[in-house]
Design a binder for these strands. Sequence first.
RNA 1: GGGCGCUUAGCUCAGUUGGUUAGAGCAUCUCUUUUACAAGGAGAGGGUCGGGGGUUCGAAUCCCUCAGCGCCCACCA
Length: 862
Amino acid sequence: MNDTPDRKYLVPEKPTLDNIEAHWIANWDQIGINAFDRGATRENIFSIDTPPPSVSGSLHMGQVFSYTHTDAVARFWRMRGKSVFYPMGWDDNGLPTERRVQNYFGVSCDPSMSFNPSFAPPFNGDVPKGHRSVAISRPNFIQLCEQLTQQDEKVFEYLFRRLGLSVDWSLLYTTIGDRARQTSQQAFLNNLARGEAYSQEAPTLWDVDFRTAVAQAELEDRERPGAYHSIAFARSDGIGDVLIETTRPELIASCVALVAHPDDARYVPLFGRTVRTPLFDVEVPVHAHELAQIDKGTGIAMVCTFGDLTDVIWWRELNLPTRVIVGRDGRILAESPEAITTPRAKETFAQLAGKTVKQAQTTIVELLRTSGELHGEPRPTTHPVKFYERGERPLEIVSSRQWYIRNGGRDPALRDSFLQRGTELAWHPEFMEHRYDNWVEGLIGDWLISRQRFFGIPIPLWYRLDANNEPDYDNPLKPSLDQLPVDPSSDVPTGFDESQRGIAGGFAGDLDIMDTWATSSLTPQIAGRWIDDHELFARVFPMDVRPQAHEIIRTWLFSTIVRSHYEHSSAPWKNAAISGWILDPDRKKMSKSKGNTVTPFELFEKYGSDAVRYWATSARPGVDTAFSEEQMKVGRKLATKLLNVSKFVLGVEVVDSRVTPSEPIDVAMLQRLAQVVTESTVAFENFDYARVLERTEAFFWWFCDDYVELVKTRAYDTTAQSASAVIALYRALNTLQRLFAPLLPFVTEEVWSWWQPESIHLGPWPTSDGILDDVVSHDDGEQLLFTVSEVLSHIRRSKTEGKTSQRTAVEYLKISGTANQLNFINSCMDDLRNAGGLSKIELVTHDQDAITVEIRLAPNSR
RNA sequence: GGGCGCUUAGCUCAGUUGGUUAGAGCAUCUCUUUUACAAGGAGAGGGUCGGGGGUUCGAAUCCCUCAGCGCCCACCA
C-alpha cells in the first residue's frame, strides 16, 4: 500500500478548521464526487430512499441529526466502491404550503374556477391586514405554490450542502412536480384498474376548519374537558324513563338508537322496543350489541350519526338509519332530519340550526334542564377526543364520497401480506418492527386518500353527468397514461370539450386531491424514475435503505410498502433505518415553538459542520437524543486534534517508504488498528455509524496520547528501528483519516489533501489486510500495549503526584512484573525511556499479576 | 387495557455471544507552557449498575417479579 506517496506535503504552518466547508463543497462539486454512476451494475449500487423534507418551514435540528446518519452510511458505501444513489426530494405538496401561499400572496383557491394564464398575485409577502383573499383557479394556485417553495428550497439546499450531505443534486425531485404527479396518478390508475382503489359514500372523519376528510393515520388524541350529561329517554310503553349518559347532548337530534350489552339484565326487557328521544320526540329502537359496556355510564348508550367511531360500527352492523345534523363547516344544519316531525321538535331544532357544535350544546343543555329531562347537573370530566394532527377543533364524522386504497384494514388476508412484507425488511434497530406490526394489526379501515384541498395531486378522474346533472361515480372517465399528469379541474376528458363541463349530459372533474402520503408513498418510484426510465429503476429498486423517523412508520413507511406490494410484488427496500428524535436538554421533545432555539446555520458557523455531525453520529441508531452543544465542542476538539496529529506525522521524514513495520510495539499498534477497521466495517454495514465513531475515536485518542508519545523520539531518528515507527505512523494516519471520513468529511478531506492527490471520499475504505498484509503479527500484541501503557501511566502519575512537569527526568525506575510482562517492557525499552525521561532502570521478576513500579524522580531543576 | 423502549458516576451515555479491579466524555479538583496541539497535555476524586428474588464457579449482562420514566396503539356513551 502507498502509505507515503513521494511528493512534497502541503501542511499549513497553522492548520485551521475555519472556512474549510466552503472550500471543499466547491471542490467536491467541481470533481463530482457525489455523482451517481448509472452505468454500475445492481450489486455495485447502494440506493437510498431519502426522506423528502417539507420545505414550508426551516431546517430543524431533528433533520440535521437524522440526515447526517444517512450521509455517513452513504459515504461509507461510496468509499467501499459502490455507486451511491442518493437523491434529495422536496416535499412541497400539501397543506403547510397551501397555508403559506394563502398568507403570502393574499389568495385562496377555488377549484371550480378555470385557469387564468395572465394572472398575477395581488401581493408578494406584504399582504395588508384586512385584505380579502382573491379566489383563483387551482392551476393558478399551484403555480404560486411552486413559486414560493422554490425560494425555500434554495435555502434548504444550501444548509444541506453546508452540513456536508453527499447528495447527488442532479437527482432532485419534488412531490408536486410533473414527474411526481405523473407517477402518483399512474399508480392510482393502476390501483383502480386492479381493484385496489375504490370510492365509496361512507362516514368519514372530517376536519371542520380545513374542510377535508382525514385518514386514520393522521389522527391524534387530545385530552379535552367535557361533561357527562344524564338524559332521560321516555319508554314508549309508558313505564318510566331510560337514563343514558353522554358527553355530546347536542347530538340528540341525530340519535338513531340506544344500545346495551346483550347480557345486561337491566336492559334485556327493552331490546326490540322503542324509546322516545327527549325534545325531538323521535321513536328510536333499543338494540343489543357486544360493544356496549355494562360498566360505562348507565350501561346503555345513545347511538348518533355520528358521534364517534363506535357509533359508525353500530350504525353499520345494526343497519340503523342516518340522521345527519352537523354540516361540513361544523355547524348544525338548517334542515332538521326527516324523522323530526312534531312542531315542538321542529321548533327546538330551529333554535340549534346554524350554531357551532359547542354553542348547540349550551342551548340544548338549557332546553333539557327546562324540560326536566336532564337529570342532575352535568358532571365535568376530561376525556380523549380525536383531532386531525394539524387541526384545532375536534373531528366530526360526516357522510361523504371518498377514495380509498385497500390496506388490509378490512381484509385479514391482505393485512397478513403487509405484515409479511414487514418481516422482509431488516429493521435498524430491530425493535422498531414492533411499531409496524402494532399499527398494521390495529387498522380499522381502508386508507382514505382523497382530500378536499387544493395544493396536491389531483385524483385523475372525471364523471359523466346524467340528465339530472348527477355524476356517475361507478364509471369514472380515465385519462390515458400519455395524458398524465392531468388536472380534472381544468383538463377535459377525451371525447368532451370544455363547454360540457358541469352541465347535464356533460362531465364533471373530480375536484379532490390525493393525500400527501399517497404521493410520498411512491418516493422510490419517483426518485428512481419508474415511469420514464425503466433501466434506471431496475438498477436502484428495491432500494437498499429507507431512512426515516419512527413517528411516521404508520404513515410513510407503511404506505410505501402498500404501494410497492401492489405495483412490484415486493418490499420497497432491504433495510429500514429508523432514527430517533431530538430532545431538548431537559429531555422533552424539542419544539419549534420555543423562541430561542438555535438554528443549524448558527451551529455550523460556531462549531463547524464536522462538529455538528459529530454530535449527530455519537447517538446510537434509533435512540432519542438530547440536543447538546457540549457534544459539538467535543467534536470540534476532535477535528482540531486530527489537524494537529496529521501535521505532526507528516512532519516526520520518510527515509525509505518500502520498509515494513517490524518493532513489536509498532506491529501491535497496527494490529489494534486493524481490529478497529474490522469492527467499524461490520458496524457500518449494519447502519451503526455510532459504533464506528466510538471505536475509531477511542483508538484515535490512545494513538495520540500514548503511541505517538512513545515513538516520537525514535521516529525522528534514522535507524532501522526508526523506519519501522515512521511507516507505522504513516500507515495509522492514513487509516484513521479514512475511518473518520464518512463521519467528519470536511476535516478528513482537509488533512488528506495535505499529502494525497485524490479525494478521500472516493476511497478506498481501509481494510485490515491493507494494514497487516506485509507485517508479521504477534498474538500477544494487546497485552504488550496494555503493559506498556500501564507502566507509562505509572510514570506519569508519579510526576503528577510529585507536582512536577511531565518532562522531569526519572533517576531510577524499578519495574516488577511477570517474565512475560518484563519481556514486553524490554521490547520497547527505548521508547519508554524516551517518553518517560528515564535513566537507570531495574527489572525484577515476580509472580503476581499486577505490575508494580518504584520511581525516584530527579531533583527539580528549578 | 395491549405493545415497545429506557433506568449504569453530578450530567449525557458506552458496556456486542455472562468472564480480570464496571468504562468514556462533560462537569469538579490538582499538576503542567512541552519542540503536532494551552481552543493543549498529564492525573485525581466520584458508581452497592432502579428494588427484590432466581440460574451459574461467576450476573450490569440471562430468567422471574415489582417500581418509575418515555413512546406507539386501543378505549372515547
